[in-house]
């Protein structure tokens, strides 16, 4: 029997919930199609590096890929709407934003010959520091490692010094005082064993970035209809699982930070207020740069969460 085999790439490591969820997607497709569609996964950037995955899917080098949307914010601000602090306060709002922006991404990706199948959110983020943050003043002058334009602006608006560093250099930079703060997820904190360098984790939430599971449109169209339906459905269940798994993974990681002696806590009121106002400012900046269609998505999203 002529089974179709696809190659899929992901830039995330094997133990990441994103990759685990993809494996379930692959299993679902395999079972429902009775082995008609086989997908082999290459994770951890072993075949294609993270930021090249979109192009790899587009050009048909591989049939599927887990695309980190945040990498392309320089091309269209829509890619980084979910990077704006407090754009989404929690997973529920992140889900609404995902639903509202999906048609826009469908159209955007279609231009590159990619069909989105599902989305996976990353857990919210927070500050890793060596002392407790009692108030917004404690962030002043902190040497904060940032990784994007939005986090750079956020850091600067909080009065911190933004420091850019490659990911691999973080532990050493922390150990030696090149940086004394880190804004990232609990997952990353566990990955780099943040407890060896910092003692406090202020879980802000605030930023729920997403990855997009995309399939090469030509490869997708070449499938018989029943297989396309199976792939679509598996994509939907991937997204639904993702919201649950992401939250569970986050709780697990925060628990692991605590188990290793870190103090984790919600941000103090004035930090929260400051972050919210910074978020509003950044949303305005975002609006100024975005296309009218993108702004329309933001307006529609805001209307929906008000209800």
């Amino acid at each position: 029997q002529a089974a179709t085999s696809w190659v899929m790439v992901s830039g995330y490591p094997d133990n990441n919930y994103v990759t685990e969820n993809i494996r379930e997607f692959i299993k679902e497709v395999d079972e429902k199609s009775n082995g008609e569609l086989k997908i082999s996964l290459h994770s951890n950037g072993s075949l294609v590096k993270m930021d090249n995955i979109r192009r790899a899917v587009q050009t048909g080098q591989v049939q599927m890929g887990e695309i980190r949307l945040g990498s392309y914010g320089n091309e269209d601000p829509m890619y980084i709407l979910d990077n704006v602090p407090y754009m989404t306060k929690d997973y529920k709002q992140a889900w609404v934003l995902m639903e509202t922006s999906a048609p826009y991404f469908d159209a955007l990706m279609a231009k590159s010959g990619i069909k989105p199948l599902g989305y996976q959110p990353f857990p919210g983020q927070g500050f890793f520091t060596q002392a407790e943050i009692h108030s917004a003043v404690d962030l002043h002058g902190k040497k904060l490692r940032i990784y994007s334009k939005v986090t750079q602006e956020m850091g600067q608006k909080l009065g911190a010094t933004a420091i850019i560093l490659p990911f691999a250099d973080i532990p050493q930079a922390f150990a030696t005082g090149m940086i004394d703060g880190l804004f990232t997820s609990a997952q990353t904190g566990v990955d780099i064993q943040a407890w060896t360098n910092s003692s406090h984790f202020t879980y802000v939430g605030a930023i729920f970035t997403k990855t997009l599971l995309g399939v090469n449109k030509e490869a997708y169209d070449a499938l018989p209809e029943n297989l396309r339906t199976i792939v679509d459905e598996a994509g939907h269940s991937l997204t639904e699982r993702a919201w649950r798994k992401s939250e569970e993974a986050n709780q697990g990681h925060i628990a692991e930070l605590e188990k290793n002696g870190m103090k984790t806590y919600a941000p103090p009121a004035d930090v929260l207020a400051r972050l919210t106002s910074v978020g509003q400012e950044l949303a305005e900046t975002w609006k100024a740069e975005a296309s009218p269609e993108a702004v329309a998505v933001l307006d529609a999203y805001r209307a929906r969460i008000k209800q």
């Binding site: 190659v7 294609v48 590096k49 090249n52 192009r55 790899a56 050009t59 048909g60 080098q61 591989v62």
Partner: peptide, 13 residues
């Protein structure tokens, strides 16, 4: 898989 295009992108990366 398309060897040529993968050649270009892997060498570039």
């Amino acid at each position: 898989a398309p060897a040529g295009s993968l050649l270009a992108s892997s060498v570039w990366e």
